[in-house]
């Protein structure tokens, strides 16, 4: 186990290193003078000189990278020349919104997917299983942007739940009820997408697990069906579920921008799109780096959880 964790951490460091190189190069891949790209053609020579020095553009590229990496390791992702704000503090302000949104959506998704998959797997191809299966399959084919449109169209407009405009977003600390109201729509949207994946993965694994001999063994002990499902079948069936959750949550961090953009929730995704539109390349670079590292970290954490849940894996 310890050896496994060490190996994974080394791999993690390697991947983060490569991500940092990739993020760093993102700007250098652009054609033209970097200072002009970053600050725009109208930048003053003084600002250009400042940036030139900051990026160490007079030095060889690998040195520039290490200068940049050194700054990043000190939490300095640069200062946006558009907003004049530090990239790190912009990200620090936006990230909690993503995390809250993801957290709520995942609670909803698991709360629906687990009991429904349990119910479905008990009688595969039974009526309930067929209904759940058809429903989840249909939802699988509805992209999140359409979910939002439909939710806004059929629920939000009718019920008067806030659905658009940055002004409607309220921080959790200032008014948590208003905050949850503004989170309802995006969280439900993300939850639907996650639910479909979790339900389908867990159902098929549960069905496979229920064929196993140790389930018959548990049955022969005379314990209840309910106990067999939760105590014996659930845990060995949750490996793929956790794997899917890792990928999916990473995907929400990276792909949450659709929902945020449409509902004007000022999270990382929203900030990223805004930065792209304003050609705020330093901010784009910062967000790409932070999100990529975040995705890798989430996968790492879930790998770790999987190992705890199923002790067979690290032994292999």
């Amino acid at each position: 186990m310890v050896r496994y964790v060490i190996r994974r951490i080394l791999m993690l460091i390697g991947i983060v290193f490569i991500i940092s190189v990739g993020s760093f190069y993102l700007i250098h891949l652009l054609p033209g003078n970097i200072t002009t790209i970053i600050e725009g053609p109208g930048a003053s020579p003084a600002n250009q000189a400042k940036l030139y020095k900051l990026l160490g553009l007079d030095r060889p590229i690998y040195e520039q990278y290490f200068v940049w990496l050194g700054n990043v390791l000190h939490g300095n992702l640069g200062t946006s020349f558009i907003s004049q704000e530090s990239v790190a503090s912009t990200i620090r302000a936006a990230l909690p919104i993503d995390l809250e949104m993801i957290f709520i959506s995942q609670v909803l998704a698991f709360a629906a997917a687990i009991p429904m998959a349990m119910r479905s797997a008990r009688k595969p191809d039974g009526i309930i299983d067929r209904i759940f299966g058809a429903g989840s399959f249909t939802l699988l084919s509805v992209p999140p942007f359409i979910v939002i449109i439909l939710l806004v169209l059929f629920i939000s407009i009718k019920l008067g739940i806030p659905h658009t405009g940055v002004s409607t977003y309220v921080a959790f600390t200032s008014d948590w009820i208003a905050n949850l109201e503004s989170m309802a729509l995006p969280a439900v949207t993300l939850a639907i997408g996650s639910f479909v994946v979790y339900f389908r993965v867990l159902r098929s694994d549960l069905i496979a697990t229920l064929q196993e001999e140790f389930i018959t063994m548990a049955r022969s002990k005379g314990i209840s069906q309910r106990r067999i499902m939760w105590r014996h079948a659930f845990r060995p069936s949750s490996v793929a579920l956790l794997g899917a959750a890792g990928v999916n949550i990473g995907g929400l961090l990276a792909g949450g921008f659709v929902v945020q953009f449409l509902l004007a929730i000022p999270g990382l995704g929203y900030t990223l799109i805004a930065a792209i539109n304003q050609n705020d390349y330093l901010l784009v670079q910062g967000i790409v780096f932070v999100v990529s590292v975040g995705v890798v970290l989430i996968n790492f954490i879930f790998d770790f959880i999987i190992n705890i849940v199923d002790p067979r894996i690290s032994r292999e």
């Binding site: 991500i19 990739g22 921008f257 990223l272 799109i273 792209i276 967000i287 790409v288 890798v296």
Partner: peptide, 11 residues
């Protein structure tokens, strides 16, 4: 694969 492909695509 570790890179979030969607962000790379957008960028």
């Amino acid at each position: 694969l570790a890179f979030p492909a969607i962000i790379a695509t957008i960028a």
